[in-house]
Amino acid sequence: MRTEAIDPSGITWQRVSPKYVTVRVVQWALGNLATVLVLSLPLVLVLAGVWAWPPLWLAATVPAVALVAALWRLALIPRQVRAIGYAERDDDLLIRTGIFFQRTMAVPYGRMQYVDIGVGPVERALGLCTLKLHTASPGTNAQIPGLPAAEGARLREQLAARGEARLAGL
């Protein structure tokens, strides 16, 4: 993975599991396919002759556009997953996400209040988990999805130990 402009230099990013693509695809399917199906309803009704109003081109265009957008989002998923990275530095944890809208975040160990691990049904089947870091600020929306379970457990223990060693007040 190439280094992006806003990534600090000299960082070797740890990548999340490629299996996380499956989780994202399932999430994508639940959201987008439902939308496309609902939007196709007028088309079906117009074709069946039940509805007269929306002209055929309109009834066809709307779901088509939605479908194209959904496919576009689907095509992006592998790249988005590859763009997620984290790196443990001496005093903070770096997390990066995004291709178009990139974000690189640094969470100092001494600021972590607690660490959550969440496992959804699809993640469980694939042996993955999502790690969430919480500081006193709700703006710290730091999570690392798609970690292999063993790596998640290791990271959690590691973060807890480092946090305890460097704990600061508010």
């Binding site: 209040q113 969440g118 500081t135 063993a150």
Partner: peptide
């Protein structure tokens, strides 16, 4: 599922900076 599979739930730091 492996033996190391993490349990969901917070690993609260003892005495962590007070917020929670």
């Amino acid at each position: 599922m492996t033996a190391e599979e993490p349990r969901p739930g917070p690993a609260a730091f003892p005495d962590a900076g007070a917020a929670a």
